[in-house]
Simulated assay, not measured.
Amino acid sequence: MTRLFHVSDLHFGREDEAALAWFAARVKDERPDGVIITGDLTYRARSEEFATATAWLEQLKVPVTIEPGNHDLPYFNPIARFLSPYQRYRKLERAIERPLDLEHVCIVPLKTTARAQWRANWSWGVVRPVSLVRTLTLLQACPANRLKIVTCHHPLIDTADMTKASNTRGGEAALGRLAAAGADVILSGHVHDPFDIRHPIAGRAVRLIGAGTLSERVRTTAPSFNELSFLAGSLQVKVRMMT
C-alpha cells in the first residue's frame, strides 16, 4: 500500500501553530510514503516566513513535494516577483515541483501560478502552455501500472462543491489533455476547504481532490489534511480534521 498526506495552504505568517504541530505529529507517528503540499506555504512570501516553513518541513523527514501558490510569490517587492519569484525558497529548492516516483504512484507537478496576467486579480490560476507541456512529458514517462497524480495549486475547474472560485485560465483545456495523457487524480489547494469529485472527461473519470488549510484562514472546515491510500488498484481518500 502507498499512503500519502496531502496538505495545502499552510500560510506561514498566518499559520495555526496547533494545527501544524498536530500534522507533524501525525507524520512522525504514521510515517506516510510522502507529503504533498499544493501551494501557499507562506502568507506574504517574506524571507522569515520561508525560514520558519523550512525549519518546520525539515522535521518531517519524509519525501516532500511542494507546488508553489499565489501567496508564495513576493507580494511587496515587484522586482523580486518578476525576476526571481522563488528565490526565497532557498533550502526548499529541491522540493519545489519535485516529481515523486513511488512504488505504486507517480506524482508530477503542474504550475498554475503567474507572476503577472492580463486580469485584475493575480491570485487566480493560469495554466501556461510551457507548464502543461512539461507536465504532459512527465506523465508520459510514468510507468503504465502506476496511479498518476498531478499536483497544482489552483483547481483546474470550478464546481458547485467549491466554496471559492479559482478562475483558472486554460484549466478546462488542460484537464482534458491531462486526462487523455492518463492522469488519474488532480490534487489542488487554494480554496481552503476539502473536496473530492469524480469528473467525467475524455471518456473516463478523473478524480479532482482538494485539501483544506492548516492556517488561521479557515472557511467552512476545521484545519485538515487528506490521507490518500492506494491499494490493489483502488484509491481511498480520508479527510482528517483536527478536533
Results as ranks from 00 to 15, higher is better:
Lys28Cys: 09
Lys28Pro: 04
Lys28Ser: 14
Asp29Cys: 06
Asp29Glu: 13
Asp29Ala: 15
Asp29Pro: 01
Glu30Val: 15
Glu30Trp: 12
Glu30Gly: 10
Glu30Met: 10
Glu30His: 13
Glu30Ser: 15
Arg31Thr: 15
Arg31Ala: 14
Pro32Tyr: 14
Pro32Arg: 07
Pro32Ser: 13
Asp33Pro: 15
Asp33His: 15
Asp33Cys: 11
Asp33Tyr: 14
Asp33Asn: 15
Asp33Phe: 14
Gly34Asp: 10
Gly34Ile: 06
Gly34Pro: 12
Val35His: 09
Val35Asn: 09
Val35Trp: 09
Val35Gly: 10
Ile36Glu: 03
Ile36Ser: 04
Ile36His: 05
Ile36Thr: 04
Ile36Phe: 11
Ile37Gly: 04
Ile37Cys: 10
Thr38Lys: 07
Thr38Asn: 08
Thr38His: 09
Thr38Pro: 09
Thr38Asp: 06
Thr38Val: 10
Thr38Glu: 06
Gly39Val: 14
Gly39His: 12
Gly39Gln: 12
Gly39Ile: 13
Gly39Leu: 12
Gly39Lys: 10
Gly39Ala: 12
Asp40Cys: 11
Asp40Trp: 03
Asp40Met: 11
Leu41Asp: 02
Leu41Thr: 05
Leu41Ser: 08
Thr42Gly: 08
Thr42Val: 12
Thr42Lys: 03
Thr42Ser: 08
Tyr43Trp: 14
Tyr43Thr: 14
Tyr43Gln: 15
Tyr43Asn: 15
Arg44Gln: 13
Arg44Pro: 02
Arg44Leu: 14
Arg44Met: 13
Ala45His: 07
Ala45Gly: 11
Ala45Tyr: 01
Ala45Asn: 07
Arg46Lys: 11
Arg46Ile: 00
Arg46Pro: 01
Arg46Gly: 05
Arg46His: 07
Ser47Met: 01
Ser47Leu: 09
Ser47Trp: 01
Ser47Gln: 04
Glu48Ile: 07
Glu48Tyr: 06
Glu48Asp: 13
Glu48Met: 01
Glu49Thr: 04
Glu49Tyr: 04
Glu49Val: 04
Glu49Ile: 06
Glu49Gly: 06
Glu49Cys: 08
Phe50Pro: 00
Phe50Ser: 00
Phe50Arg: 00
Ala51Trp: 02
Ala51Cys: 01
Ala51Phe: 02
Thr52Val: 07
Thr52His: 02
Thr52Trp: 01
Ala53Val: 01
Ala53Lys: 01
Ala53Gly: 12
Thr54Ser: 10
Thr54Leu: 03
Ala55Met: 07
Ala55Ser: 11
Ala55Thr: 09
Ala55Ile: 08
Ala55Pro: 04
Ala55Cys: 06
Trp56Glu: 02
Trp56Ala: 02
Trp56Pro: 04
Trp56Cys: 03
Trp56Phe: 14
Trp56His: 00
Leu57Val: 12
Leu57Arg: 03
Leu57Asn: 02
Glu58Lys: 10
Glu58Asp: 14
Glu58Ile: 07
Glu58Trp: 00
Glu58Ala: 11
Gln59Arg: 13
Leu60Glu: 04
Leu60Gly: 07
Leu60Arg: 05
Leu60Asp: 01
Lys61Gly: 08
Lys61Ser: 14
Lys61Val: 12
Lys61Arg: 14
Lys61Asp: 15
Val62His: 06
Val62Phe: 03
Val62Thr: 10
Pro63Val: 07
Pro63Glu: 02
Pro63Asn: 01
Pro63Trp: 05
